[in-house]
Amino acid sequence: MIIVMAGGRSTRMGKEKPVLRVGGKPMLLRVYGEAEKAGETLVTLSRNTPKTKEWCLRERIPFVETPGRGYVEDVRWLLREFGPFVSVSSDLPFVRASDIGSIAKAFDGKTSLTGVLPLERVPGDLKPVVYRGYAVVGLNAVGAEGENFFELSNPLLALNVNTPKDLKLAERIAKLVGR
């Protein structure tokens, strides 16, 4: 199962990120569309995302509401409710079905896989979260037995839209890549 994480508070952005448009399309629809191509997909919402819930109802996108106490707590809740899953953040506007499929294929259902990019693959304008020499991206496989890194190749996964500045950059990139 693929789960699109769309229930966060969006504190740095100041508004619900999943409904913000990149390339004329809400990020939620961009991410969900790619995830759905890769397999059975469900969106997670919480009390923090009422507008996103409206979109899911309008577009008939399957969703579940999590407790909304924070990312880690919601992931643990999802693991208990659904078992192992692939997680993709709703603020990754340039994720592709092939990215999701590659981590899903490598996932053994037990050991979590944290999606990462080698730093040399990260475009210069982006300032990703760096851990152990890699850029950490919002595409993961969630299991219950340990964790490994999983190297991805799509450099645009380094753009996680968290701030208004990130959103402007995503808009520029969408125009350049025609997505």
Rank of each mutant, 00 (worst) to 15 (best):
V4M: 03
A6V: 05
A6Q: 08
G8Q: 15
S10Y: 04
R12Y: 11
M13F: 13
G14W: 13
K15I: 06
K17G: 11
K17D: 03
P18R: 02
R21W: 02
R21E: 14
P26E: 02
P26T: 12
L29Q: 12
Y32P: 14
Y32F: 15
E34R: 06
A35P: 11
K37H: 12
A38L: 07
E40N: 12
L42I: 14
V43W: 02
V43T: 02
L45H: 07
N48A: 13
P50H: 02
P50L: 01
P50K: 00
T52Q: 14
C56V: 03
C56M: 03
L57A: 11
R58G: 11
R58H: 14
E59Q: 06
F63A: 08
G70L: 10
D74L: 02
D74G: 01
R76C: 00
R76H: 09
R80S: 09
E81Q: 10
E81K: 15
G83Q: 11
S87G: 01
S89T: 13
S89W: 04
S90C: 09
F94R: 03
S98M: 09
I100C: 06
I100H: 01
G101R: 05
G101C: 11
S102K: 15
S102F: 09
I103F: 04
K105D: 05
F107G: 02
D108I: 10
G109A: 06
T111E: 07
S112T: 05
T114C: 12
G115D: 07
P118V: 00
P118W: 03
R121E: 15
L126C: 08
K127Q: 13
P128R: 06
A135I: 02
A135C: 04
A135F: 00
G138W: 07
A141T: 01
A141V: 00
A141P: 01
V142Q: 00
V142G: 07
E145I: 08
E145D: 13
G146M: 04
N148S: 08
N148L: 03
F150D: 03
L152W: 02
L152S: 01
S153E: 12
P155C: 11
L157H: 02
L157T: 01
L159K: 10
N162M: 13
T163V: 06
K165A: 14
D166F: 10
L167A: 15
L167M: 13
L167P: 10
K168I: 13
A170E: 04
R172S: 15
I173S: 12
I173V: 08
K175Y: 09
K175C: 07
L176E: 15
L176T: 10
L176V: 13
G178M: 04
R179D: 14
